[in-house]
Simulated scan of single mutants.
Amino acid sequence: MASMAAILVSGVLLGSLYALMASGLSVVWTTLGVFNFAHGALMMIGAYVAWTVSEPAGLGLIPGIVAGTAAAALCGVLIEYLLVRPFYGSRHMLLATCMTTLAGMIVLEKGAQIVWGARLKQLPRLVGGDVSIFGATISAHEALIVVLAPVVLLALWRFTVVTNRGRSLRAVGQNQDAAALIGIDVPVAFATAFGLSAALAGLTGALLGSIRFITPEMGSGPLVKAMIVVIFGGLGSLGATAGAAYVIGLLEAVLVFWVGLYWTPFILFVLMIVVLVFRPNGLFGRS
């Protein structure tokens, strides 16, 4: 029972982190129909800026997290303006943006190494102490992430459903020409999608920086998992992405326990391929 509780708690924690990361990718895909391969690097930027504001500047962790989220959002808007916008309307937009955002990822990672160095860094925890759940013990900071992730996802969903700006993102994602005809500024919607997506990545990085070490490449692994989640759940649906994130998190926790850390990524990729063979629109996507 103790092992099952540990697996369940670990899976929910992983799912919470993957949901925050993957929801950002889902927002960009839903609005523009492209993948942002610099998404993991934006998570790293959020962690580094949070560390800079919190530790060297001495302003505290909460201002650091806010600054890291804002810095990542700004970087996301710049990526959209410099690396994605020039290819709007191009027949090869998907391929071109894959290449340019990959280049952006490399620039951000190498730039971070120049600015902050290669030495490992880590943020303090938002909340001290430990929490016991069904006999499994995790830090209070990790428990806060588990609680915070659904709140952030619910707020994101409410934004896309209730606010005019959020509804404009959905309209642009459904039909750009029709959205422009009814007065929606499509380029602004694209920039908003990238900024919102990057803010989620920066928040995730700032929260993760208290659990793992901050390095220039810290976003590479989570980016791969986030892409698996988005494809596994079904492209273009925030709810499907959130559901798939927790499924993948629980699967990963079970696989790490039973087959080990080495084989887990391989099995996850195989499962994703199997799902796509039988359900091309994803596990929770519409057939």
Rank of each mutant, 00 (worst) to 15 (best):
A73Q: 07
S132Y: 03
V259C: 01
V9F: 01
L32S: 13
I138K: 03
L74F: 05
L14N: 06
R279W: 06
F257S: 15
G68M: 10
V53H: 11
L123G: 13
G236M: 08
Y81V: 13
A245T: 01
L8P: 01
N36T: 06
V27E: 12
L32D: 05
G117A: 06
G233N: 14
L250F: 08
V9E: 01
G195C: 08
G24H: 10
P187Q: 02
P150C: 08
G128C: 04
L120F: 12
A112K: 13
A96P: 07
I182R: 10
A191S: 10
S10E: 04
G233I: 12
F266M: 13
G46I: 13
G166Y: 08
V275L: 10
V162G: 05
L271S: 08
E252K: 00
L235G: 03
I211H: 03
E109H: 11
G111M: 09
T163N: 07
L144A: 08
G219L: 11
V270S: 12
I45R: 12
V256D: 07
V230G: 03
T160V: 15
F194E: 10
V28K: 00
L82A: 15
P280W: 11
A2P: 04
V115Q: 08
V9G: 03
V146M: 15
A71H: 01
G219E: 06
V256W: 00
S3Q: 15
C98K: 01
G173K: 15
C75G: 12
I145H: 05
V147D: 05
T204W: 04
V188Q: 06
D130M: 12
R170V: 13
V162L: 01
G24D: 04
A240E: 10
A50V: 00
V151Y: 08
Y81D: 10
G239I: 06
I267S: 04
A143W: 14
A47F: 09
I273D: 08
L42C: 10
S210H: 07
A118P: 08
W258E: 11
I114D: 08
A72C: 02
M218A: 14
F159I: 00
A180H: 02
A155R: 09
A19E: 10
W263R: 12
L154S: 09
A180F: 00
L32M: 14
G233Q: 08
I248K: 03
M93L: 05
L126N: 07
V230C: 02
S10H: 05
L25R: 15
A19D: 14
I228P: 14
V256L: 09
A72M: 02
P63C: 09
I145F: 13
V277T: 02
S3W: 03
S10D: 09
L261A: 11
